[in-house]
Each structure stands twice: as C-alpha cells, then as structure tokens.
C-alpha cells in the first residue's frame, strides 16, 4: 500500500475542493493507503470546530472526524490559521497544527502528492 499526501489551499465555504479532498482521502484509505491531508491558506477553515452545518454550505466536520478515527492524518498550517483568527483552543480535536515544513516532510516519502491550490 502507498502513501498519498494531499495539500488543499481552498476554502471550506466557497468551493468544493476540500469536499473533494476529503472524499478522495476516504477512497484512498478504503483501499488501504495511508493519507496525509495538509490544509493551508483558506483551507485552514476546515480545522475550526463546532461549525454549523447548513445545506447550502460545505460542512466536513463529521466525515473528517470519522476519517481521523480511522487514521487520516490532518494538519493545518499554524500561521495561516492564526492569521485568520483560528486559534488552537478552537481547533477540531485530532487536527494538528504545524508550520509549512510539515507539508514538505510529508511529501518526502509520499508515493503521490496531490496539490490543490487556493482560489
């Protein structure tokens, strides 16, 4: 089995790129692959806990929690999160926060890297 690193820089609300990234993570894990998900820029929005789910806006807290329980490794860019007011005490349990070098470290031994840029 391989390792997939996904970097997603797109916003949770305003695009469905993060929805795609989470669905792809689920599909890869279903096949037995290890998945690292790095969120940076506006993508750090996914790391905030207690977001209210509306049918008109993407909401990924539930699937993200389920996938993290199965081993999905999710890390948010700490500087990107802090600059947006997403502080550690309001971060979804299980989501880690590191600097950008974490993404490159994950890419080091990834079999595939899928980078999804921001808007």
């Amino acid at each position: 089995m391989g390792k997939l690193t996904i970097g997603c820089f797109a916003s949770l609300v305003g695009s469905t790129n993060l929805d795609f990234a989470v669905k792809l993570s689920a599909a890869a894990m279903e096949k037995g692959h290890k998945v690292d998900l790095w969120v940076s820029g506006n993508g750090t929005m996914i790391s905030i806990k207690d977001q209210r789910a509306f049918k008109d806006y993407s909401s990924l807290e539930k699937p993200l929690k389920e996938l993290m329980a199965k081993g999905l490794n999710v890390t948010a860019c700490e500087a990107c999160a802090e600059s947006r007011g997403y502080h550690a005490d309001h971060t979804l349990e299980g989501v880690k926060r590191f600097s950008m070098d974490w993404y490159l470290g994950s890419a080091f031994d990834a079999d595939r890297l899928l980078h999804i840029g921001g808007e």
Partner: peptide, 22 residues
Amino acid sequence: KSENPKLALTHAIASQSVEIYL
C-alpha cells in the same frame, strides 16, 4: 490578487527547515 504565489514561495522556503521531520 490571490494568496497563491506567496504561499508557493513560503512553502518552498520551508524546505530549509524540513529536516526536523526527516
């Protein structure tokens, strides 16, 4: 116009400190 170019550069620059994960 977007944050992308700057994020490209800051992530590339982060290659200088990635050793802590390797």
